[in-house]
């Protein structure tokens, strides 16, 4: 009996040890990012590295925000991610419903193939298109290209949710003389609200994180945050503190959203392995 108990304790200990080993790489990177952003330049260039900032300083953040173009880029990112997500919901939610109801597997396949295509391959033709329409230099091209990411996410998540709904309620509404639009608007849509939330969060996050479209399409005034941070790295004297502070500012909204909406995000991702990029 005693050996059984011992083995149980050892097993428990092993489990906690494995979990610690699993989360420590994530902890290392995020804590190191925070540490770099809170230290003076002298501490950041010290070797062996200084782990705990003493005393912590907010100078790096002040430096990032002192450059007013960083606020412009934040505004750009907010506009792009919100517009791309809103437009995707507007067209994607009904489409998910239509595909689920009509069981249009071929339309679903198209979305799958779109997912397989590298983002860069959309970029060359769209780049030319925007030049011809003389839209370069505005945020419009960036919003439109982000639809390449957000529309498939929304459609795919919504197909899954609408297929999971019981058909009886809509059938009852249709039998009572409702049009299919009314059945969608007043019966299916309210039931699928959790699905809309999941689609909204995922499409916002992957649009916010996107780098490849804006790095090609954005001009000086229309950079999104990931591009702005990348440019800090390439074109300026590298100083780690402000760079880490800027990186933290860019990814913080997404990390906070993940912490708050963890359940919805996990549900959406396990439903299908949604990913942007």
């Amino acid at each position: 009996m005693r050996s059984y108990r011992l083995r149980r304790i050892a097993g428990r200990f092993g489990l906690y040890l494995s979990v610690l080993a699993l989360i420590s790489p994530a902890l290392l990177v995020f804590l190191w990012m925070i540490s770099l952003s809170l230290k003076t330049e002298i501490d950041n260039m010290d070797y062996p590295p200084v782990f705990i900032p003493h005393p912590p300083t907010l100078d790096n953040f002040a430096q990032v925000f002192a450059r007013n173009d960083f606020l412009t880029y934040t505004k750009n990112s907010v506009i792009v991610s919100f517009s791309a997500t809103a437009l995707a919901l507007l067209v994607g939610v009904p489409a998910g419903y239509g595909i689920a109801k009509a069981r249009a597997t071929r339309a679903a396949m198209l979305i799958l193939i779109a997912r397989m295509t590298p983002g860069l391959s959309y970029l060359i033709p769209l780049f030319l298109l925007f030049q011809w329409l003389s839209l370069t230099g505005t945020l419009v091209p960036i919003v439109i290209t982000h639809l390449v990411i957000t529309v498939p996410i929304v459609v795919w998540v919504m197909i899954g949710f609408f297929e999971g709904l019981p058909a009886e309620l809509e059938e009852a509404a249709l039998t009572d003389g409702a049009t299919i639009w009314q059945a969608f608007r007043h019966v299916a849509l309210p039931l699928a609200r959790p699905g809309v939330t999941v689609a909204l969060i995922l499409s916002f996050i992957f649009s916010w994180n996107n780098f490849i479209f804006a790095v090609v399409l954005a001009g000086r005034e229309t950079r999104t945050l990931p591009v702005a941070v990348y440019n800090v790295l390439t074109f300026e004297q590298i100083s780690w503190g402000p760079l880490a502070a800027a990186a933290l500012c860019v990814t913080a909204p997404v990390l906070l959203l993940t912490l708050v909406m963890q359940k919805e995000i996990v549900a959406g991702l396990t439903a299908g392995g949604v990913k942007g990029g």
Binding site: A26, F30, F211, Y230, A244, V250, V254
Partner: peptide, 20 residues
């Protein structure tokens, strides 16, 4: 623990790449 574990996947890749 699970939330910490999934954070890398949601973080902005460019920001993470800079830290690496």
């Amino acid at each position: 623990a699970r939330t910490i574990f999934i954070l890398p996947m949601m973080a902005t890749p460019v920001a993470i790449a800079l830290v690496w």
